[in-house]
Design a protein around this nucleic acid. Structure first.
Lengths: 277, 277
DNA sequence: CGAATAGTGTCTGTCAGACATTATTCC
DNA sequence: GGAATAATGTCTGACAGACACTATTCG
């Protein structure tokens, strides 16, 4: 579109035409459960509903000065505002763009395009609700009544509509669902799993990440063999845990994340027959 | 963000705060070359530069009536406007969201968030330039000087900056690069390749799609065995081509696309060592 | 006929899945 | 000691890659 045409079409009546928000699907694992960061909305629309943390893209500072942030910076800012995490801890969170949601009517106020980000982090403290929220919490995704586990297939182009037993505001159930699908898929061929554990970890902890996110049991010995055979996935620290397992067993070897981001060969889930469609 | 707070922050001076455009990376194969639809801009900024087809999200009809389109509808509309394709042909084009691009300064006029879509289609006619364009053409991506072929790895989180020998407007080189990466990756584990060929096709034609998009030679017999072993990928039509190959050879069996969208097991490229990072 | 291509058959190394076994630690 | 778990070893079936070979068609 030319500048002239743009200016011609630039009718003030058109504004506010479109607003842009950034929403974050922040995932972590607590007590062997996959959890997502949610906030309880303190004002309409959807007052009292839980929603993903997010907000409008900032165009100026709080002092009113002109200013622009990238989309990813906005996602990080929203995450920090809603969690009370400091920059150091936030630095450990892996952020990536999930997708944009812009159906007319998804926000009753006006036309809103939301750019969703997906974040993964190791166990984090309980969040401090931000100013727009009544509460904030890490909520186990299993409690939200979305389809989970083997139902999800990586790379599915069109996501199925999630069931919504505990409804989220706007289309956030759909966004969360898409984020979970993405996360499950990325475990297969990227080193994403290490983003969910601490700096050093045992193979069993890493396996717990896979089992928790995928919602299926994995075979211990085979998993170990597989992990160690992928070049650059993990490297040995040369130490063991202080104690063995709570109910017995030897001390585990400790590992740290390697320099690989992509796993080759990949760690594929066993598929049954839901590949068709 | 609450309604009250939103309204409080709603300062007219902020507008035009954000504009939303939709850009399309439309790919097809012509003469065994992977081509992308580009238009030559007829007005500043970047006048005379080639860019991806795209434009602002419509909020009202040409008559000025209120109206809203989904992001995907907007992508389809832009594609139709720039190609002169009718709805029937456009129906054969597979469209999916690629990602959003919103760095400050990517558009010199104002803050613009662009939602990029990726489209795949069988060979299509030469495009008719739309009103905002001086020209429109299917351009072989190899002529654009982007990194190609085995350099690209599926699932790479952070895309490397593409080289830009023939510069595209805005950050469209980056968007195109990301689209090509996505396309290469999706050939591995989805039935996307069938979107590039006609309703019936030979295994050799399908192989040509893979070879063209991936930029590497594949082994004929093994490719055939692999394709036919993936349930639901292709199904036999029971007929053969009218003639054999131009330089000899028997007639080929014809196939049509099956009902599978996901390939299992996947058709993986051979990776060398660029998995690390 | 000669060349090119479609399609079949076969071998081999690699790897995932299953299972058995040993060693170590907690209670 | 008994139970649970970490870690190692072994077997087998599936499959990718490589290659040889046959059949068919064009020029």
């Amino acid at each position: 579109m030319s500048e002239a045409e743009f200016l011609a079409a630039y009718d003030p009546r058109d504004y506010p035409a479109v607003a842009v928000t950034v929403d974050v699907v922040a995932l972590t694992i607590r007590d062997d459960r996959l959890c997502v960061l949610l906030v309880e909305r303190a004002a309409p629309p959807f007052e009292g509903f839980w929603s993903l943390p997010g907000g409008f893209l900032k165009q100026r500072t709080d002092d009113g000065e002109a200013y622009a942030e990238t989309l990813e910076e906005a996602a990080g800012r929203e995450l920090a505002e809603e969690t009370g995490l400091d920059a150091v801890r936030l630095d450990r969170v892996h952020l990536e763009q999930l997708g944009s949601y812009g159906d007319p009517g998804r926000d009753p106020r006006m036309r809103v395009i939301s750019v969703a980000y997906l974040g993964f982090g190791p166990q984090m403290p309980d969040p401090e609700p931000g100013s727009d929220a009544r509460a904030a919490a890490w909520v186990p995704v299993a409690d939200l009544g979305l389809p989970e586990g083997p139902d999800a297939i990586p790379g599915r182009t069109v996501s199925q509509r999630p069931g919504t037993s505990r409804r989220l505001a706007f289309d956030h159930a759909q966004i969360l669902f898409d984020g979970l699908e993405r996360a499950r898929g990325k475990l297969e061929y990227t080193a994403l799993a290490t983003a969910f554990v601490g700096d050093t970890f045992t193979i069993a902890e890493l396996r717990a990440v896979y089992e928790t996110v995928w919602g299926e049991q994995l075979h211990g010995p085979n998993f170990r063999r597989k992990i160690l055979s992928v070049p650059g996935f993990v490297e040995s620290v040369g130490a063991t845990t202080e104690r063995g397992g709570a109910r017995g067993g030897p001390r585990s070897q400790l590992y740290r994340a390697g320099d690989a981001t992509l796993l080759h060969p990949a760690l594929l889930r066993t598929v049954t027959e839901e590949q068709i469609r």
